[in-house]
Design a protein around this nucleic acid. Structure first.
Length: 494
RNA sequence: GGGUCGCUAGCUCAUCAGGUAGAGCACCUCCCUUUUAAGGAGGUGGUGUCAGGUUCAAGUCCUGAGCGACCUACCA
């Protein structure tokens, strides 16, 4: 972008010329610095460090420079918090102090050694004995007492992380949550595996893919929309419990719960059904509730989400009946259409009965599912990879978890009948021919795997970004992605 | 995709009855030996998102484009 233009900016010019002056006597970008403590360790170990007058070495970014004559106070941010440092001319000597005062600015990264004390206003502070410039910043920090715009935070996440310690905490928590889920699955004896991101045929979800091209093979490849079909191949192969943390890519709209690339966790367990998966998911989430919530409750925006009774179970058609008063399950196709129309649902050509039900559900039920709910037993056409329901052959054995009005997971008793699976794929092909470009594509290689015999299997996919949103009280997926998708700032930039 | 609002100094924002721009932070000079949105004095810095139009005159009005925020619809 306009680097050249920005580098003409006065402040940057000034800092660059300052940098050249520094270079005459000092290396502004040395190779390393040995620190003895981090800021939070200083706070934790204060009593001991003060008593022993321990000389500590810390490093971090200067966030402000408060000059008071022949002394300076500077807040320093490091990996886990902040600590104030105090520099005094009489301690450092005229030359070094002058260098510090003149050449080192807010935004620079320095290392200092010194002893701990408390100022008369009570702030724990390092009394500097020696200092070292570790990295000179040639751009100014953003303004310090107003929050950056949301756009700038998302575009330049490093600035957000520099300025806002809570942003660092949020992403640290994201990592912690993912780690928690991972170790939970490993405890349950799931095996972590990796499957292709680049796939010759995409499948496992109803979604439009990103397409790319392999030059050597001269063929199109698709970025995965799900890893489901690969994980099931592994179950066929005898890896009975597998999981993957997978970046998936869907070429669709973006909003507060959707980013074109996002992170899912899918897991499959042989000999399990969807009830087992409900238990697994519930336990996985309750662990997080215990860790981050209070008395089985978590605050999310205006809502208090109450997990003390686990997830409520709501049958898909019952949910619709509750909210609309209409028992769609008892209606024939023509009446489904006319009732849906009465409700104001837009029906387009090629929408089958079940698709219409999905619309009704999405409109009238989903937004109301604030408290943790498993929506179970969906219509068959919506779920071409799910096994038919053992009690009602028009439905499948499936559940989706809804919390705070959005979907967090999707799971089924996996369809393992190769003949039936082929039929379902063919039905999808028909939908596709009728114009549904999200319909799934027949995957012959996957069918061949099923034909080898897959044990009865339970599968689960969890939208990890959304899970993180819940436990970080974030309203938008962008806030839990370090680098959310953004349009380039300037056109024709290069 | 549809609607509403926004885009002015590096950052956060003023100017909003059309008369060619201001503040705070940051930066520069100076004063200040316990400050913490440090303070005081002075100063630099703007092709007002872009492109057209109306007008004697446009950041300000009109049209279009770009980017963003929020709401709304669909996929996790």
């Amino acid at each position: 972008m306009s680097n050249d233009q920005n580098e003409r900016h006065r402040i940057i010019e000034e800092k660059l010329s300052k940098l050249e002056i520094i270079r005459e006597t000092t290396e502004p970008y040395p190779h390393k610095y040995d620190r003895t403590h981090t800021s939070s360790q200083l706070h934790e170990m204060e009593a001991e460090l003060v008593e022993n007058e321990t000389v500590v070495r810390i490093a971090g970014r200067i966030m402000a420079k408060r000059k008071a004559g022949r002394t300076m106070f500077l807040p320093l941010y490091d990996c886990d918090g902040k600590i104030q440092i105090y520099a005094k001319r009489d301690d450092l000597g005229d030359e070094p102090f002058a260098f510090f005062k003149k050449m080192i600015d807010a935004g620079d990264i320095i290392g200092v050694s010194g002893t701990l004390f408390r100022t008369k206003t009570g702030e724990l502070t390092v009394h500097v004995q020696t200092f070292e410039l570790l990295s000179k910043a040639v751009r100014p920090l953003p303004e310090k007492f107003h929050d950056m715009s949301l756009e700038l935070k998302s575009r330049k996440r490093y600035l957000d992380l520099i300025m806002n310690l809570d942003a660092r905490d949020r992403f640290r928590r994201r990592s912690e949550i993912l780690e928690n889920v991972r170790s939970f699955l490993i405890e349950q004896e799931f095996l972590e595996v990796e499957t292709p991101v680049l796939q010759p045929i995409y499948g496992g979800a109803t979604a439009r893919p990103f397409v790319t091209h392999h030059n050597a093979l001269d063929m199109p490849l698709y970025l995965r929309v799900a890893d489901e079909l690969y994980l099931k191949r592994l179950v066929v192969g005898g890896l009975e419990k597998v999981f993957e943390f997978c970046k998936d890519f869907r070429n669709e709209g973006m909003d507060r719960t959707h980013n074109p690339e996002f992170t899912m966790m899918e897991c499959y367990a042989a000999y399990w059904d969807y009830f087992d998966m409900m238990d697994l998911f519930e336990e996985m989430v309750l662990r997080l509730v215990d860790k981050y919530g209070d008395d089985k409750k978590i605050q999310y925006g205006e809502h208090v989400l109450d997990f003390s009774n686990g997830f409520k179970r709501l049958r898909f058609l019952d949910g619709i009946k509750e909210k609309t008063g209409i028992d769609f399950g008892a209606l024939d196709d023509a009446n489904v259409i006319s009732e849906a129309k009465k409700l104001g649902v837009t029906i387009t050509k090629g929408m089958g009965r079940d698709k219409i039900l999905d619309e009704v559900f999405g409109e009238f039920v989903e937004p109301n599912l604030i408290q943790p709910t498993f929506v179970i037993d969906h219509p068959k056409e919506l779920s071409p990879l799910a096994k038919v329901n053992r009690e009602d052959e028009t439905l499948v054995e499936r559940f989706e978890a809804f919390i705070a009005g959005f979907e967090v997971c999707n799971s089924f008793s996996e369809l393992n009948d190769p003949v039936e699976q082929r039929r379902r794929f063919e039905a999808q092909a028909k939908l596709r021919a009728e114009g549904d470009d999200e319909a799934q594509v027949l995957d012959e290689d996957f069918l061949e795997a099923l034909e080898m015999g897959m044990p009865p299997t339970g599968g689960l996919g969890v939208g990890l970004d959304r899970l993180v949103m819940l436990f970080t009280d974030c309203n938008s997926i962008r806030d839990v992605l370090l680098f959310p998708a953004m349009r380039p700032e300037e056109q024709g930039a290069e």
